[in-house]
């Protein structure tokens, strides 16, 4: 039987996040037809791109302007679309936005949800995710109607498949939210503008950064590399950088293509947050640091000197 799979497209200020394409690739399985759910009024602009990655139909969910940013209303709208288009499973990104949206949808549907999936097998309804802070991988069997899968960004390399997507308008303007309203949206301006969970490159600093000011060296280099800046717990607990930048067991779990660890010793808790990275490069003055023996490249050097050198090279190239 052919399954209708809904893929919730995540956008940021009108731009489709690159991680959506890997998610669509993962959702494209035997006996599936893919429906992209777009909620930001940009279905037309995305049509070509989504078609080239195997989307058959784009459902443009139209929300009342006041509720564009309201996760409760967005969740209700998606639940309505599930019913209307007889979707049998939903995919969404396991990003900060996804963590605020997908559980709301699952709670309305009263169905299963697995967050942070690196793999989904729709034939057997089994999702692969991590448990015990990345110390184990788990296969989770989901039962019941319309399971929701939160997909870890960068978990799958995007692969094209040409389709010709049609657009269906779906009005959800009558939806309301009496319980919850968004009253303000702002930026702390304290950390990097690029999201840790979605970045292809992360430069992280630890004890070896010595103070908060030195993190500026990482920010400057990150800007040139289009990278996000992360940190170990020590840097957060010392008050050098905000909590939102922490990678690890009680911070963000990240899987960038490249993780550059600067002056980070590599505790078991830190590894829990970054072990699924593609490549790990460690720069540390201490050769005996745990990370130096469990990385792809290591340099016994002072990150405070190496990082500015890299920035300089990127400026001239």
């Amino acid at each position: 039987m052919i399954k209708h799979i809904g893929v919730i497209i995540e956008q940021d200020n009108g731009i489709m996040k690159a991680a959506n394409l890997g998610m669509i690739t993962m959702a494209r399985q035997k006996h599936t037809i893919l429906f992209a759910l777009v909620m930001d009024g940009s279905a037309g602009a995305l049509k070509e791109k989504l078609s080239s990655f195997g989307i058959s139909t784009i459902i443009e969910i139209r929300l009342a302007e006041d509720f564009q940013d309201n996760p409760d209303v967005r969740a209700k709208a998606v639940a309505k679309a599930v019913e209307k288009f007889e979707l049998s499973a939903l995919f969404g990104l396991s990003t900060a936005m996804g963590k605020d949206l997908l559980p709301r949808i699952a709670a309305i549907l009263d169905g299963s949800l697995v967050m942070d999936c690196f793999d989904v097998d729709l034939e057997n309804n089994i999702a692969g995710t991590s448990r015990y802070s990345g110390k184990t991988l788990a296969k989770i069997k989901v039962r019941g109607p319309v399971p929701v899968f939160g997909i870890r960004p960068n978990a799958r390399e995007p692969v094209q498949e040409q389709k010709s997507a049609g657009i269906i308008q779906f009005e959800a303007v009558s939806l309301d939210s009496k319980l919850l309203r968004v009253v303000k949206r702002g930026e702390t301006g304290k950390d990097s503008k690029i999201s840790l969970t979605e970045a292809e490159i992360i430069i992280s600093g630890g004890r070896g950064m010595k103070n908060g000011e030195n993190f500026n060296l990482l920010f400057e280099c990150a800007q040139k590399l289009n990278a996000a800046v992360g940190s170990s717990r020590v840097a957060v607990d010392s008050g050098w950088v905000p909590y939102a930048m922490q990678v690890g067991q009680t911070g963000e779990k990240v899987s960038p293509k490249v993780y550059i660890a600067c002056g980070i010793s590599g505790s078991i808790q830190h590894f829990a947050g970054m072990k699924t990275s593609g490549m790990v490069i460690a720069i540390n003055l201490d050769e005996t640091a745990a990370i130096m023996s469990n990385c792809d490249y290591y340099a016994k050097a002072d990150a405070l000197k190496i990082i500015p050198e890299i920035t300089k090279l990127l400026e001239t190239s």
Binding site: D110, L137, V142, T276
Partner: peptide, 19 residues
């Protein structure tokens, strides 16, 4: 009406070969 069940747990011991 719905259920999530762990059917398999696998240790995630990634060992890289540093250069």
């Amino acid at each position: 009406q719905a259920r999530m069940e762990v059917v398999e747990l696998i240790p995630h011991l990634q060992k890289r070969q540093p250069v």
